[in-house]
Amino acid sequence: MLDTLIFDSWKGLIRPFLMCLLAYPFLIFILRIFGKRTLTQINLFDFIITVTYGATLSSILTNNKVSFAEGAVILLMLTVLQFIVSQSSVHSKTFADFMKASPSFLYRDGQFFEKSMQHHRIRMEDLKAVVRKQGMSSFEQVEAIVLEGDGTLSVIQKEAGSSNDVLSGVE
């Protein structure tokens, strides 16, 4: 048993080698055809598709029961569905709003939005850390902290006498 743990036979290496030669270029090809938007991680759906690409590619390469043709159909269908969702998001504001989480205020003008922090499971320590990472020493220097639709935290620094139009559209 230990003698086959690392290397069993050359025959066992041929399938994964050939599948890599077929599946990886195929995935790159279909992603290039459907454009850059296919791999961006803008919302939860995009993240799920990206993880699913990896899981499907892994199955094609390692599972003897999955043929290249079956894997190629899965990769192609995932890409087509992603394309349809992204196109629908561009052409329909209602659909885009449904698919993409909207940003939320966690802090603005000296006030913490505790209900929003609890809802999104954001702790005060998380806000302090993000403010420190921006090189600020206190919340007095902060106009707002926004939880973006992609899950990142944005800190908007106070500026003397200016209105900040990047805050429009935030709940």
Rank of each mutant, 00 (worst) to 15 (best):
A144G: 04
V146T: 05
R108D: 09
V131L: 05
A144F: 05
D46F: 01
I145M: 02
T38G: 08
A72L: 02
L44M: 14
V142I: 03
K133S: 06
K11Q: 11
L75P: 08
D109F: 01
L21G: 13
K133M: 12
F105C: 03
N43R: 05
Y107F: 14
S92W: 15
V146P: 01
L13Q: 13
F113G: 03
F98C: 08
S58E: 03
G71E: 01
Q82P: 11
D8A: 14
C20A: 15
Q141H: 10
F17L: 13
L13I: 08
L167E: 00
C20D: 02
F26D: 01
L61Y: 02
D165E: 07
L78V: 04
D126A: 03
E171C: 05
E148A: 09
I30N: 05
F45E: 11
G71V: 04
A55M: 12
H120Q: 05
P16H: 02
L106G: 07
R37T: 10
Y24F: 15
S58M: 05
T38H: 10
T152N: 13
A69G: 03
V80C: 14
L76A: 14
R132L: 05
F26G: 00
W10K: 05
T52R: 00
I49W: 03
I42K: 11
M117V: 09
V142C: 01
Q87F: 11
K128L: 12
I60C: 06
L57E: 00
T50L: 14
Y53W: 06
S116V: 11
T52C: 09
F17R: 03
G35F: 00
N164S: 03
V146W: 03
S9D: 00
T50A: 15
I33V: 15
K93Q: 06
F105D: 04
I60T: 06
L106E: 02
I42Y: 04
G110S: 08
L75V: 08
